Amino acid sequence: MSDVNVQFEQAQQDVQKLPERPGNLTLLRLYALFKQATEGDVHGDKPGFTDIVGKYKYEAWAALQGTAQDAAKAQYVEVVESLKSGASN
Rank of each mutant, 00 (worst) to 15 (best):
L64F: 10
A63D: 15
A72T: 09
L33M: 07
Y58H: 08
W61K: 13
G86I: 02
D45K: 11
D51S: 11
Q69S: 10
V42W: 05
G66E: 13
Q65D: 14
G86F: 00
S2F: 06
A32H: 09
E78S: 04
E20V: 04
N89I: 00
M1D: 02
G48L: 06
L30M: 10
Y56S: 07
E39N: 07
Q7Y: 02
A68Y: 04
P47Q: 06
A68L: 04
L64K: 12
D41Q: 10
A87D: 05
A74G: 04
K35V: 06
A72V: 10
L25I: 04
D70G: 11
K84V: 02
Q36I: 12
V77S: 05
Q36E: 11
L83F: 11
K17H: 06
S82W: 01
V79Q: 00
W61D: 05
T38A: 08
E20W: 03
F8Q: 08
V6L: 12
T67K: 14
A72M: 09
Y76L: 13
K73C: 09
K55H: 07
V15R: 11
L64I: 08
A74D: 10
H43T: 15
D70V: 10
P22K: 00
K17E: 11
I52Q: 13
E78R: 02
K46N: 01
G86D: 01
F8Y: 15
Y58E: 04
V6K: 15
T67M: 15
E81R: 13
N24V: 05
A63T: 14
E9F: 08
I52D: 08
G40H: 11
V53R: 14
S85P: 03
V4H: 07
A72P: 10
L18H: 03
E59R: 09
L27Q: 15
L83W: 04
E59W: 01
K57M: 13
G44R: 09
L30C: 04
T38S: 11
Q7W: 03
Q75H: 10
V79H: 00
D41H: 04
D41L: 01
V42R: 14
Y56H: 15
A11Q: 12
L28Q: 13
S88F: 02
A60Y: 03
N24W: 06
T50M: 14
A32P: 10
A87G: 01
V6D: 11
A11V: 05
G86A: 08
S88Q: 12
L30S: 08
K84P: 00
D45N: 14
A60C: 08
T50H: 06
N5K: 14
G40T: 11
K57I: 10
Q36L: 09
A74R: 10
L83I: 06
